[in-house]
């Protein structure tokens, strides 16, 4: 809600601010009109991107009656939180908790293990590291569908089915290839002399990884962590495969089944559930949008 009201005017004022800039040079009326179509186009584009989200937040306060009898553009008659209350009454709190339980431990392991592997593959010198890097690259290319059936068998045989473990383990394995690959790229941009110097100073390699390497790629680790967080938090395939009971559902699986709970669509609660689901990512993006953009685009070019 708050982002919409903050970000839209800021974009608008920025664009208005720009229109004065060319005027300082030589702005003929012809130039002004030749720029007009682009301005209009951008305004429409921003409305298309922002309006659905604004509509969703407004809708999350409306009653069923308002949805059925009022046109879509009306504002809610009251700002009551009833819809949100009914969302949490239907067990959404558990879904959020489940997501936190599976995502954050996976994320921690992915980062710790992945950063170390990236260091070993990029900074250290040994035979066969090209092959191992290629092995990780294969994990980015091959679809997850290729591994979930045997994994289902493994978890079933080992009795892990019905716990959080199948999700956590699978998340770690699917998150590793991209993390290793991105971290190797980041270590590549660190001048080799730094590690060679610390070696000459008598530091053991594990120590130069810990005391020299890690601080240098601190920001990169944070960026990769953000990217992986979005992948894991938004995942549906793995969560859907390995949740066999309502008690294990993550926030995405919970939302997917949300509308199905009632016969007819309960508009208000549905909108509130979407809003709750979106809120986490929205909040992160509000503060860290530049890192998120950098991370996601870097991840795709390498991948």
């Amino acid at each position: 809600m708050t982002t919409q009201t903050i970000s839209v005017p800021s974009a608008a004022t920025r664009r208005q601010g720009r229109s004065t800039v060319p005027r300082n040079r030589r702005t003929t009326p012809r130039q002004f009109f030749s720029r007009l179509p682009i301005r209009v186009f951008l305004a429409i584009l921003l409305v298309i991107v922002v309006y659905p989200m604004l509509w969703m937040f407004l809708g999350s306060f409306k009653t069923q009656n308002e949805f059925l009898n009022e046109p879509f553009w009306t504002l809610p008659q009251s700002w009551s939180l009833d819809n949100y209350v009914s969302v949490f009454d239907s067990g959404f709190g558990t879904y959020i908790l489940n997501s936190i339980i599976v995502v954050f431990p996976s994320l921690a392991v992915i980062l710790i293990v992945g950063v170390a592997a990236g260091f070993a593959l990029e900074v250290m010198v040994w035979k066969g590291r090209g092959t191992v890097l290629l092995l990780f690259l294969a994990g980015i290319m091959v679809p997850t569908q290729m591994s979930i059936l045997p994994l289902f068998t493994i978890y079933f045989r080992t009795g892990l089915t019905g716990s959080y473990w199948p999700m956590i383990l699978t998340y770690i394995a699917t998150g590793l290839p991209l993390t290793v690959f991105m971290m190797a790229t980041f270590f590549r941009s660190v001048p080799r002399e730094i590690f060679e110097a610390s070696t000459l100073d008598g530091a053991r390699i594990l120590r130069s990884f810990w005391a020299v390497g890690l601080p240098l790629v601190k920001n990169a680790i944070f960026t990769v962590g953000l990217v992986q967080f979005f992948f894991l938090w938004n995942d549906l395939l793995i969560a859907l495969t390995f949740t066999n009971s309502d008690a294990l559902r993550t926030i995405q699986v919970g939302l997917l089944n949300f509308t199905g709970q009632y016969g007819a669509v309960q508009y208000g609660p549905t909108f509130a559930a979407i809003a709750v689901n979106v809120l986490g990512t929205l909040f992160i993006y509000l503060f860290l949008n530049q890192q998120v953009m950098k991370g996601l685009t870097a991840g795709s070019v390498k991948g």
């Binding site: 170390a116 260091f119 593959l121 040994w126 191992v132 394995a173 594990l206």
Partner: peptide, 22 residues
């Protein structure tokens, strides 16, 4: 030894949960 410590965990987890199932 250092390579084993740094790369080992990632490679083992990745092999067991991704490569073997593939």
């Amino acid at each position: 030894r250092a390579i084993l410590i740094l790369l080992g965990p990632a490679l083992v987890v990745y092999s067991l949960i991704m490569l073997v199932p593939i």
